[in-house]
Design a binder for these strands. Structure first.
Lengths: 338, 338
DNA sequence: TCCTGTTTTCGCAGCGCTGCGAAAAGGACG
DNA sequence: CGTCCTTTTCGCAGCGCTGCGAAAACAGGA
């Protein structure tokens, strides 16, 4: 097979072996388990590697050993500090264990998730990380048929395909409701990004609504048409002010929405929290310095990444995993906006 | 080689071939160029694939053809809407051309960049995308020795290793300075995240400073210790208010910093823009609805991704590339904060 | 020096696929 | 029915590496 080489690996293990006057097997062994090669050889081989600038061919290695150092991760979007921080932490911890992340964006679409999963699985990954429990039937089948360790993240509750690392969004909603109730708010609203796009926001709403209604309070629901755009949020809040002037507090599906609400209040001269209280979700960086500082909920962004890495590494080492269902919980951060 | 199969590909091309009563070569051909297989066979083969749930082994394919459908991308961080939006667009466009992104976080560290690049190159990628021009010597050597198409993004100006897609941060700074000068501001400050971390912010500062000084204006520089944290930004702004009370306008290295500044002004009762003008960089979603709406600069986040995808795909198709140095420019969005 | 046990090195048969060249199957026409 | 040309299918030799089992080298003791 003579072919034009296109970005082809120039230097092979054989070249290194030849230069170091050893067999390719020895080079391979040196690369995989250096301690099992005599110090003299090791040095010669390393010198040859450096001299030739040899880079191992991961594909060849993966094929031969029929296992890869790839972890496939599917998130709805990386343009969201929730997932991107988890991804960053996850990649940080997995890389030091020699793993490489392969990231796919499902764009909140289960069909797309299936498609991406197929493409991920064709890499023969060592592990898979999915976001949430909402998968279509084929995805589920694909996953159950494989023996790859699977983590479902950023949610908690459903049975789960294998391992689960996240927290309950329903509880999250209840937590905020309890906070509102304790402050005496009874006429409240929940402003959210589109539920169809974000099931977890919907769960938070449900928890919130249920808890409020149990206490006999009234909840008005408002859904944005798109993502958490502060402009649209402002419009929605404005309408709410007109339609439901008796409103006392507004819970938002995330901090960005809450910021939009607060800015609209400022524009309309509604004092926070005296005229209306506002709370967000996410504890994003800016929430501590809004005027007034925003009450919000801190999700375990980084802890999710850390724990997934830990579980995955343990599992891949073949160690027994005690806890494979983790509810990492959340923390309500009460500030002056409520 | 009998070995315990660990996440091993269960169904191979041979299995499919057997079930469809054709040779493996035909299956391979069908998968790669379906038009060259007779319709009858095509159908039989597809049926066999569906029946067995066959997933091709990308590693084997990549090894055999000695080319991969991988594009390696190195960004400083994905926790930043600048890069994450570019990444999302890039991945979107490259995926439809059959490419898979392999993302690495350099964490603003050139040594780490080198390390990640090595690991990326061991995948034998079809293309590489790096952020900016700041690479160490070994990285440069590694890159120049390979025949892989390379794109340097999010900057413009230096010679460049191969292709360049971005814009001039220096010009960006000048643009803001011109805007300030036109508004009559002469006593100004530039508040920025750490230059050591973000060279591009430094370039923007330099453009800004130079242009202002050419006009005889005075520029105070303030650098944050960490990332764009609104709390720290508030402190810095506060100190600025005390130290330089005659300040007329503040340019910030990004919108988040500008938000922190605006919130501090609100807290101190400094009216924007009458007491002091504030401008950001990034045109993030919320900038349109701050009080007052924020003047900022819109970088071509998505256009960068689109253009990289286009250049890369063209190059990989072997088509001649006319323009491989793209300055996509920026747009100043003048709002009421200046 | 020979024997035995241990450490180090090596040879070889794949991993699952691609892509060339050749063989086989179809089609058109005299 | 045979010939020639086109279309479709197939056989085979790798791609660069791993990992087993065996061979070689070394070390220590009799």
């Amino acid at each position: 097979m003579t072919r034009r080489r296109r970005g082809t690996q120039r230097v092979t293990m054989e070249d290194v072996a030849r230069l170091a006057s050893v067999s390719p097997s020895t080079v391979s062994l040196y690369l995989r388990r250096p301690a099992e090669v005599s110090p003299v050889r090791a040095q010669t081989i390393q010198a040859a590697i450096d001299r030739l600038g040899y880079l191992p061919n991961t594909m060849a290695g993966g094929l031969a050993s029929s296992r890869s150092k790839i972890i496939g991760v599917l998130v709805p979007t990386i343009t969201n500090s929730f997932f991107s921080e988890t991804l960053e932490t996850l990649e940080h911890h997995l890389r030091r264990a020699g793993y490489q992340l392969l990231i796919g964006n499902t764009e909140f679409d289960v069909e797309r998730e299936e498609e991406l999963l197929r493409s991920l699985m064709s890499w023969n990954p060592a592990g898979l990380v999915l976001t949430g429990f909402a998968h279509n039937r084929k995805t589920r089948a694909l996953l159950l048929n494989s023996e790859v360790p699977i983590v479902e993240m950023w949610d908690y509750g459903s049975p789960g395909l294998d391992m689960v690392v996240g927290f309950s969004h329903f509880q999250c909603g209840r937590l905020m409701a309890e906070h509102f109730l304790a402050a005496g708010y009874r006429q409240v609203a929940f402003i959210s990004t589109r539920f169809a796009r974000d099931i977890r926001a919907h769960d938070r709403y449900e928890g919130f609504r249920q808890c409020m209604e149990e206490a006999g309070a009234h909840v008005v629901k408002k859904e944005l048409a798109g993502r958490s755009d502060t402009r649209e949020t402002g419009d929605i809040m404005h309408r709410l002010m007109v339609d439901e002037p008796e409103i006392e507090a507004v819970a938002c599906s995330n901090d960005m929405v809450a910021l939009g609400v607060m800015l609209e209040c400022q524009r309309q001269g509604w004092a926070i929290p005296h005229r209306v209280a506002v709370a967000g979700f996410g504890n994003q960086d800016f929430t501590g310095s809004t005027v007034p500082p925003m009450t919000t909920i801190e999700p375990p962004r980084q802890a999710i990444g850390e724990n997934i890495a830990r579980l995955l590494i343990n599992r891949l080492r073949g160690e027994s995993c005690d806890q494979t269902l983790l509810d990492l919980g959340v923390r309500l951060i009460a500030r002056e906006s409520t």
